[in-house]
Design a binder for these strands. Structure first.
Lengths: 223, 223
DNA sequence: GTCATGATAGGAACACGTTCCACCTCGTCC
DNA sequence: GGACGAGGTGGAACGTGTTCCTATCATGAC
């Protein structure tokens, strides 16, 4: 309830980050509950994405989501305790989708820097193709507090996993990354996030964002 | 009009700062209006800081601010068009204060990395001394959209100025920084912001934050 | 079949950001 | 002094996130 509680997950910093402690295979939220419940959950997230895509953060109104998902408002709140949770969960699902699209296929590029930039550009292109959706999800991510730690963590893990595979294409497990590589991954994630926020809030253009990331990567991976 | 300074910070992307259109020496908001108006403005910002410091973002309620500043709600909205503007303006004032406290005094430290870390640690300590206030101001900063560009810009400039002086203590004007140094400054600012968000939202501890910044700085300034 | 139990529907109610309106106050100009 | 107008006051009202309550529905135990 009170967002001040120091909860778990704190020992390993999360940020966009460290996949350090895998939370012992938490059951994916898509796998719990009855079939009807999974179906409702999916409808809710679909409605969320649709509304976000149409009008951004402000357009994702809980009453609208409930109506479009054909679910009562109280039910919506039973599934997602707040608008922020709802949007961060949606973000998690989208991120997962993106990661699965990339998985398997090797990342093109000779050097680590090239591959990382490639990955980030692909991600950015995907996001910029749907500005409203991106705005909604990013805002939610930035506004989430510790009560959404679990969802945030999933997103961070996915990001780490994508970047890691770009850094070292032959690595199987993220845990095998060296300390410095983990740090680099984290910094790049931070820059990416900041750039994204700048873009979402209209403070910088898409070109700015891309340039900012390229510069950061070239500073960090100059070998 | 103004002497063309061709400084690097304006054309490049923004990160914490540079809005696309530099507002050409806008008169500081503390210098406009009648004495009574400046006084009202100050009372409003004081009330904002006080409430934020007591209970964070949620405690800064427009009705409360108006009441504590002894001002009508409509007047409050005449001075600051939204809660976000209000908080970002307050952030700007606080940041200015911090920067003025640092100005003049040389930053201790042998290497650039040491000095940058020192500055950031001082900043972080200041922020962590008042978590509620920090939470309120950071949330606002992250949530601000382009309508608050001017205020955001002030904050970004201040940050850049502080970091620049740490990088090159003898520099007089920020515009003299080399391209790479500007880029480094920006990346560090990004990491700092991300770390701050992580801390504010309860996703990471103060120690995490400090460590995260140190690692980033040492990666970026390893000469 | 009946019943108990938990989930859902439907909707009222509340809190807070924001807008709007009617009226008042005070400095300025004639 | 009186009229004017910008800016201030007090408060009602609206929208949206959130909470809460009651009736209805579904499902498994017996």
């Amino acid at each position: 309830m009170s967002p001040t509680s120091t909860d778990a997950t704190t020992d390993a910093s999360t940020d966009l980050g460290t996949a350090a402690t895998a939370p012992a295979a938490a059951p994916s939220p898509d796998e719990v509950g009855s079939a009807a419940q999974r179906e409702r959950r999916k409808r809710i997230l679909d409605a969320t994405i649709a509304l976000a895509s149409e009008g951004g953060f402000d357009a994702v109104q809980m009453r609208s989501v409930a109506e479009r998902a054909d679910v009562a408002l109280g039910t919506l709140y039973r599934y997602f305790p707040s608008k922020i949770h709802l949007l961060v969960s949606a973000l998690g699902r989208e991120f997962d989708k993106a990661e699965q699209g990339l998985r398997g296929r090797p990342v093109p590029g000779e050097t680590a820097a090239e591959r990382v930039i490639t990955i980030l550009k692909m991600l950015s292109r995907g996001l910029q193709a749907d500005p409203h959706l991106t705005e909604a999800l990013t805002r939610a991510f930035m506004f989430a507090d510790s009560s959404a730690t679990a969802e945030i963590h999933r997103v961070g893990m996915t990001m780490t996993s994508m970047l890691s595979r770009a850094l070292h294409p032959d690595l199987v497990d993220v845990g095998e990354l060296g300390e410095e590589d983990v740090a680099i991954t984290k910094v790049i994630g931070d820059v990416w996030l900041s750039a994204l926020v700048g873009w979402v809030t209209g403070r910088s253009t898409a070109a700015d964002t891309a340039h900012q990331i390229e510069v950061a990567v070239s500073l960090l991976l100059r070998d």
